[in-house]
Design a protein around this nucleic acid. Sequence first.
DNA 1: GCCAACGTTGGC
DNA 2: GCCAACGTTGGC
Length: 135
Amino acid sequence: MAKWLVKSDPKSYSWEDMKKDGKTFWDGVRNYQARNNMQEMKNDDEVLFYHSVIGTEVVGICKVVKEAYQDPTTDDERWVAVDLEVVRELANPVQLQDIKKVDKLQDIALIKQSRLSVMPLEDEEFLAIVEMSEK
DNA sequence: GCCAACGTTGGC
DNA sequence: GCCAACGTTGGC
């Protein structure tokens, strides 16, 4: 089962909004690389929810409940959306600056490719971040 | 709020 | 098909 990380600017959609909704359409992605990643998502894949711009921290875990389909916010068939459901909130948010200190997390797209909004994570990278949240 | 980095667009 | 110009994202 694959692991992912998605970013959201809390000004447009925050983890608090996500918790309130329980489930959301992940739409509005207009970047080919992010789109390609979304198309790879499968039901029950786990997804870390990251706050960009404000906080710059990983705040929660979601899972994929509906695989890629035509983005309902556009007629342009190039773009897709997925549905994500809240799994749980992390005990403590994991800061980007702390992730940057971890040797084995140096290669993740969050650090190397700061503008990518949907990215894959290796199992051990996912676990490392979750473990950091529990300290 | 600024600015660097990057992706996309459009002219040639 | 290249590349300059432009717009947007996201870290600080």
